[in-house]
Design a protein around this nucleic acid. Sequence first.
DNA 1: ATGGCCTTGGTACAAGGA
Length: 257
Amino acid sequence: MKLATWNVNSLAVRLPQLLDWLAANPVDALVLQETKLSDDKFPQAEIEAAGYQVVFHGQKTYNGVALLSRASGAQDVVKNIPGFDDDMARVITGTVDGVRVIGGYFPNGQAPDSDKFVYKMRWLDALRAFVADELQRHPRLVLMGDFNIAPEDRDVYDPVAWAGQIHCTPQERAHFQQLCGLGLVDAFRLFEQPPKSWSWWDYRNLAFRKNQGLRIDIILVSDTLRPRVQACVIDKLPRKNERPSDHAPVVVELAAQ
DNA sequence: ATGGCCTTGGTACAAGGA
């Protein structure tokens, strides 16, 4: 079973690339972030024509998430974080083939001294409570998405320049560790990986060509699923396309039960 | 090297992203 996450930075722009990627990478579940589409504009028919079921939670212009899955579809779908009042469409959850899949577009936070950072901290508190609750009922659980947190210095191309900056603050990293403390593990780090592995590269500064990026797109798997994890990779190929998203997909492979 | 790019809304350029 393969599951993946991808921040597409506008599904309206990236739909052809998404369909190409799915044709080459027939995953069982895929969560998308930054679809930037209200639900009435979501390209459901095109995705279904490609052989996927899809549930989505969007808004105009900003944010927006979706969960694609194979024929059996996603069960018990939840949109956003219950009990957390939020104008932004950031979370979608469903059960796919017995695995509880939570897809998240974590707040950016803008700057550590900003109101948006305060929101990020509140959102992370709410997410942690939600994930803890979900884990009680679904021990086979995957939390994946654009975390907008670089968990460690090795996830940052220039840790000195980024020290204390957004994505790298001690507060954000503490939240990441608290999520792991619920009984989740970073699937990417279960394996030896190439040094300087990133999932996002700035559009500016020839950052992709110079491999200057961050690893902020992350797949956490529950302790129950951990023995089934066989591989976790970042697929840089779509970042080499014309008109790419600034993020690359991340894929995890689970052994059959 | 100040910012350099991309997307949206809307039709000029500002805001947000990371």
